[in-house]
Design a protein around this nucleic acid. Structure first.
Lengths: 199, 199
DNA sequence: GTCTATATCGGGATAGAC
DNA sequence: GTCTATCCCGATATAGAC
């Protein structure tokens, strides 16, 4: 299906504008705190026009989340093959470079803990998938004898994710006083031992 | 000033009921997601009556936060004198025992990252105070030679707080699959070496 | 595709009787 | 202290003209 030409060209463009502004709004005021009016105004269109492209607020939220997911995975796929430690740090650094991305995830993931929130399923699945992926990586490291003795892969996976998200939140409150990357690196260096042949 | 007897006795009681229900509401739906109407209904009183006791929604939020703070510190003050590691774990375990408390802090601390949020100052100061307190504790441990070499007290303080909050969030999504206490304990055991004379 | 106009609802806040 | 009634606003959503 072509979208760059033809009758849907303008629509696709509009949708992208809207998603961009919705992203900014959700990242600063959360889902409940944002209004379709402000997103429409920021997009330079009327409220009704926005609703012509996205029937409901929930549809807009889901679009924002999945859209960012695709872009995020795209940025990472170019880095495949990196060792786990470097992969995580690169991913974190990449996220830091995208304005508002950290705020978006921090705010929405907390807001969506309640079952009724439109983003609940998304984040529940996201955490689950992340934990499984990281646990597998830590298990591989352990098989290579590169995991510090006593460190459980499943627990380490949960911990890395938790640490990263928690330090991001503190960073949002006090960017000058919190170094998110350093905290993540320090933890990884605590649990992962250097590659033997690299010495 | 006496509050248990006299003309203000009923008022204090009402206020406590309201704060309790507001606490439940904020802990499940956040600040923006909660309405004074629902809190009033849960308290068994009218909206106007609630507003007679708390003029604004913001005043109610601040009251909920500070009230919980006082109760929290009260619970901890009975545990003073414990070593840092045990102190942190006890505090965490105590929080787990209070229904909704973790949800309250998780949801509100993320919601309040934006400057305009009524709870912003509270959480900014809370993080700052916590970091300073924990950094001092880690510094003491280092002076006693009980901190693993290479571990920075300031970074460890930020990390403990981040890890704790992050793992709580995952726990809210999947209580069966995440063990918050175990993750916290595992990290502390990574950075703190056992007391020498305890062997 | 885009707009104006409006419907409908729920929010916080206020007035005033009892 | 507590209520009913109401105001005013802003929210999502819909109808229909252009």
């Amino acid at each position: 299906m072509r979208t760059r030409r033809g009758p849907y060209a303008k629509s696709a463009e509009r949708r992208q504008q809207i998603v961009e502004q919705a992203y900014r709004a959700f990242a600063t005021r959360g889902y409940h705190g944002s209004s379709l009016r402000e997103i429409a105004a920021a997009s330079g269109i009327s409220l009704s026009n926005l609703q012509h492209h996205f029937a409901t607020k929930e549809e807009l939220l889901v679009t924002v989340l999945t859209r960012r997911d695709e872009q995020g995975h795209g940025a990472v796929s170019g880095r495949q093959g990196l060792p786990f430690r470097e992969h995580v740090l690169a991913q974190a650094a990449a996220n830091e470079g995208v304005p508002g991305l950290i705020a978006l995830y921090s705010i929405l993931s907390a807001e969506a803990v309640t079952q009724e929130h439109p983003g609940h399923a998304y984040f529940a699945e996201r955490y689950e998938a992340l934990r499984e992926e990281y646990e597998a990586e830590f298990s591989t490291l352990r098989a290579q004898g590169r995991l510090r003795p006593g460190v459980e892969p499943a627990l380490a996976a949960t911990t890395v994710i938790a640490l990263w998200e928690g330090v991001q939140l503190q960073w949002l409150y006090a960017p000058d006083r919190v170094d998110a990357g350093a905290a993540l690196r320090a933890y990884l260096d605590l649990v992962i031992v250097p590659q033997a042949d690299a010495l």
